[in-house]
């Protein structure tokens, strides 16, 4: 028996919004410790890694580890039927071929359940090596989303250059070029608005704007985002999900011909 309950369906809706642009379907691995999802997009350029810890749920029970392959478009249709403040419970029997979502309104006057067929997804698990990153940038997630959206209008590739002074995002295309420089702030009063950089050595890497835009769909999950970069390894874009876990996106760089 598997059962996981969250008092606010809004969180699950935001999690799904954060993954469904990159993935059509995904396996949710459920165990004692929580729910994990790891999948690459179809083109194998980006990878989504989601962890929802069992202690972050209002109720969590997982008698036997199980993998639930879900079509994310179908899951999205179901979650649209929940109000943001509904309690959501995800249920499955051991070895089941369906999963059930139960939505309960705050006053319990409305209870709905939606059963969805599970899929057999033959997804391989990837070992992600631990990396000591040359640069780790922390900034407001809204600011990152804004920069990516603004710059993507002018080109397909963004060059991210990080030094100890700050981080520069640059794009060039048919129209011309655009640069956004963010200096490191020492804004201790408003930590949420600060830009901080931990740098071992400067890094310059190019990435496809289209993927970064997809990653920023996670913005509603967290006020902060962390970008980790080292030369010639994938970028890691991480959003913490308060008291529940995190979503990390890995993006392979673009390399000059």
């Amino acid at each position: 028996m598997f059962e996981a309950r969250l008092t606010s369906a809004a969180t699950l809706k935001k999690v799904l919004e954060a993954v469904k642009e990159l993935l059509n379907e995904a396996s949710f691995d459920c165990s004692d410790s929580g729910i994990q999802l790891q999948a690459m997009d179809n083109s194998h350029v980006s990878l989504v890694s989601l962890t929802l810890r069992s202690d972050g749920f209002d109720k969590y029970r997982c008698d036997r580890s199980l993998t639930m392959g879900m079509n994310l478009a179908s899951m999205s249709k179901i979650l649209k039927c929940a109000n943001n403040d509904d309690t959501v419970t995800i249920k499955a029997q051991d070895d089941a071929d369906t999963v059930t979502f139960v939505f309960e309104s705050k006053k319990q006057e409305k209870i709905s359940d939606y059963e969805m067929k599970l899929m057999n997804l033959d997804q391989e698990h990837l070992g992600i090596p631990e990396t000591d990153f040359s640069c780790v940038i922390r900034m407001p997630s809204v600011e990152f989303a804004r920069i990516v959206r603004d710059l993507a209008q002018f080109g397909e590739t963004v060059l991210i250059c990080c030094t100890k002074e700050g981080v520069k995002f640059s794009v060039s295309g048919d129209v011309g070029s655009a640069n956004v420089k963010l200096a490191q702030t020492n804004n201790f009063d408003k930590e949420e608005e600060s830009v901080s950089i931990e740098m071992q050595e400067p890094v310059s890497l190019s990435f496809a704007c289209q993927y970064l835009i997809s990653f920023t769909k996670a913005t509603p999950l967290s006020p902060r985002v962390q970008l980790s970069m080292s030369s010639n390894v994938p970028l890691v874009v991480e959003y913490e999900i308060a008291e529940l876990g995190y979503i990390r996106y890995y993006l392979a760089p673009k390399i000059e011909d």
């Binding site: 690459m40 083109s43 194998h44 350029v45 980006s46 990878l47 391989e124 698990h125 990837l126 070992g127 992600i128 090596p129 590739t157 190019s206 496809a208 390894v233 994938p234 890995y250 392979a252 760089p253 673009k254 390399i255 000059e256 011909d257």
Partner: peptide, 14 residues
């Protein structure tokens, strides 16, 4: 122009 690299080379299948 820059070429998009795939992730496969960076991670190993476990």
């Amino acid at each position: 122009t820059a070429t998009q690299v795939r992730l496969d080379g960076f991670f190993t299948v476990v």
